[in-house]
Simulated scan of single mutants.
Amino acid sequence: MKNETHVKTGILGTKVITQIGILVEDIEKTSQAYADFFGIDKPQWSLTDTVDIAQTEYKGQSSEARAKLAFFDMGSLQLELIEPDQHPSTWRDHLNEHGEGPHHIAFIVDGMKEKIQLLESTHMPLVQKGEYTGGRYAYMDTFKDLKIMFELLENDR
């Protein structure tokens, strides 16, 4: 009986994918291509915060990594385009190793620290984490088992 809740809600406590993150070399060009394809306005990109605000950590070390982000709200799902800078990050490494394309799927969670510990206990380590206005994120290396990285998003109440 004790694992019944775990089976119903899974490790994350949700099965709702909120976002798909896609790595790109040129956010302007790719944003325009998406906007044209879907017949919608091209969103303005924004730059992630500096390390002193974002507290970005990659593989356990502080990182100056920043990225240009563009968001497309597609009904129940958000597409996030990510153009990373040259500093060490999961974005830069993934783009260098695999080229442009899917990087992660994201889920909104409650209890970020607990979810990170739970995933790490199942051999899915924390890769990168940071803060954003209104919350925090964590990229977990779920690739070996699930063939894509998971991003956990926790928004302040």
Score class of each variant (00 low, 15 high):
136 R>F: 01
56 T>H: 05
71 F>G: 02
26 D>K: 07
112 M>G: 00
46 S>M: 10
140 M>K: 03
25 E>L: 11
92 R>Y: 11
43 P>L: 01
48 T>S: 12
111 G>M: 00
119 L>Q: 01
57 E>Q: 05
12 L>R: 01
52 D>C: 04
43 P>G: 01
128 Q>M: 12
142 T>V: 03
127 V>G: 02
148 I>V: 13
28 E>N: 09
41 D>P: 00
15 K>Y: 08
78 Q>I: 09
82 I>H: 14
60 G>H: 04
61 Q>V: 13
91 W>A: 13
146 L>F: 06
102 P>Y: 11
133 T>E: 14
153 L>E: 11
138 A>K: 01
28 E>I: 04
53 I>L: 09
119 L>S: 01
45 W>Y: 07
27 I>G: 12
21 G>H: 11
33 A>T: 15
29 K>S: 11
124 M>P: 02
16 V>Q: 14
55 Q>N: 05
71 F>E: 04
37 F>K: 12
5 T>S: 14
15 K>W: 06
134 G>N: 03
113 K>G: 15
100 E>T: 08
62 S>Q: 08
67 A>N: 13
73 D>G: 08
146 L>C: 10
23 L>Y: 04
3 N>V: 09
76 S>Q: 11
113 K>Q: 13
1 M>W: 14
143 F>W: 12
66 R>S: 05
117 Q>G: 13
126 L>Q: 02
140 M>V: 06
142 T>I: 02
108 I>Q: 10
138 A>M: 03
58 Y>N: 06
37 F>M: 15
94 H>M: 07
76 S>P: 06
85 D>T: 11
4 E>N: 15
96 N>P: 09
136 R>I: 00
77 L>N: 00
19 Q>H: 11
132 Y>P: 02
154 E>T: 01
14 T>A: 01
108 I>H: 10
50 T>V: 12
22 I>R: 14
86 Q>Y: 14
118 L>A: 08
70 A>Q: 04
16 V>G: 08
84 P>Y: 04
157 R>Y: 13
120 E>Q: 04
143 F>A: 10
156 D>P: 02
76 S>F: 05
98 H>C: 13
130 G>W: 00
54 A>Y: 00
91 W>F: 10
65 A>C: 07
70 A>F: 04
17 I>M: 14
2 K>R: 15
5 T>M: 15
102 P>D: 06
42 K>D: 03
94 H>N: 11
45 W>P: 09
109 V>I: 12
143 F>P: 07
